[in-house]
Design a protein around this nucleic acid. Structure first.
Length: 299
DNA sequence: AAACCGGGGTT
DNA sequence: AACCCAGGTTT
């Protein structure tokens, strides 16, 4: 059946009401949480699921409760504490951001989107997320979950296409006027996509806006855009080989010989003869490895 | 615009 | 085996 037309206010109110009693109880959503703690959560949550982030975030905040505390430690310690969250460059960038916050912002996470964008490792999503969730600023915050919710609910599509500037305009058109309600809706739309309007098997019976959903109303057409780039396979990739080297360095209390690092890189197989050296060199280029006198160590 | 960057869980 | 994930940087 065709969905009943709904106003933006009806949608945001329904989603916010649902969020009030259905949201997961995540520690970075508490009232006492600092902007720094929220910034750390956003770094960790980039392309990484909530369940995997939780224990790492708790340990991180215990150890480095402020940006200056992290900045005072070695970057390598951040990489070590990052553990297996993936994309270890994020740990390095978070440490750099901590130094920048400590040195340029008096140990206070900046509030404006522009100032946040100037920090290392913060892009359009994270800047708006921190401004909205840490400071209550009214900005559209659009992640992969929100894009999918909007694609289905508003556009009647099975999945979102490539990220586009229109995503922000779409979200803006649904965003409540009041900053407080807007911040809640940003989180609520995300939560809806993460727990109900999921990519694989959406639970429409639990959705507060199912009656207004264009995709549901159209009979769930399989009209997903074809242009989504297929991600490269992980097995046998340089990324996997880099991961082996990083795992070795994380567990090593002392520098390791380059030869040992290259040997470990090949354990489990390589795509070609040059792959271990190529992965090793790329880690040096990224600043994740420091090499001196034939020894490799964390920065 | 496309490539690259982890790693674990789900289907 | 393919897909998915609170993205960002580089070319």
């Amino acid at each position: 059946m065709k969905p009943t037309a709904a106003t933006a206010a009806e949608i945001s109110t329904a989603v916010n009401d649902w969020y009030a009693h259905s949201a997961r109880d995540l520690p970075w959503r508490g009232a006492e949480v600092t902007p720094w703690a929220i910034l750390v959560s956003e770094f960790m949550l980039q392309q990484t699921q909530v369940e995997r982030v939780l224990p790492r975030w708790l340990a991180w905040m215990e150890r480095w409760p402020t940006a200056s505390a992290l900045a005072a430690d070695e970057p390598g310690e951040a990489v070590r504490a990052w553990d297996r969250l993936g994309y270890p460059r994020r740990a390095l960038w978070l440490h750099r951001a901590a130094v920048e916050i400590s040195e340029r912002h008096g140990d206070t996470v900046p509030q404006s989107v522009d100032a946040l964008l100037a920090l290392t490792g913060i892009g359009p999503y994270t800047a708006r997320a921190v401004a909205a969730f840490a400071y209550g600023e009214r900005h559209p915050v659009v992640d992969t979950n929100t894009r999918r919710v909007i694609a289905r609910l508003v556009h009647g599509r099975a999945a979102a296409g490539m990220p586009a500037p229109a995503d922000l305009a779409d979200m803006e058109s649904l965003l409540p006027r009041a900053p407080e309600a807007a911040a809640v809706f940003n989180a609520a739309a995300m939560e809806l996509g993460a727990t109900v309007c999921t990519a694989r098997a959406p639970r429409c019976d639990a959705c507060p806006v199912a009656a207004w959903c264009e995709w549901r109303g159209a009979g769930y057409p399989d009209n997903a855009p074809e242009k989504r780039p297929k991600q490269a396979r992980f097995a046998g990739s340089d990324r996997q080989v880099r991961g082996r080297i990083m795992a070795l360095l994380r567990r090593s209390a002392h520098p390791v010989a380059r030869a040992e690092a290259l040997e470990v890189a090949a354990v489990g197989g390589v795509a070609d003869q040059e792959q271990p050296q190529r992965a090793y060199d790329s880690l040096i280029a990224d600043g994740l490895i420091i090499e001196a006198d034939g020894q490799a160590r964390l920065p």
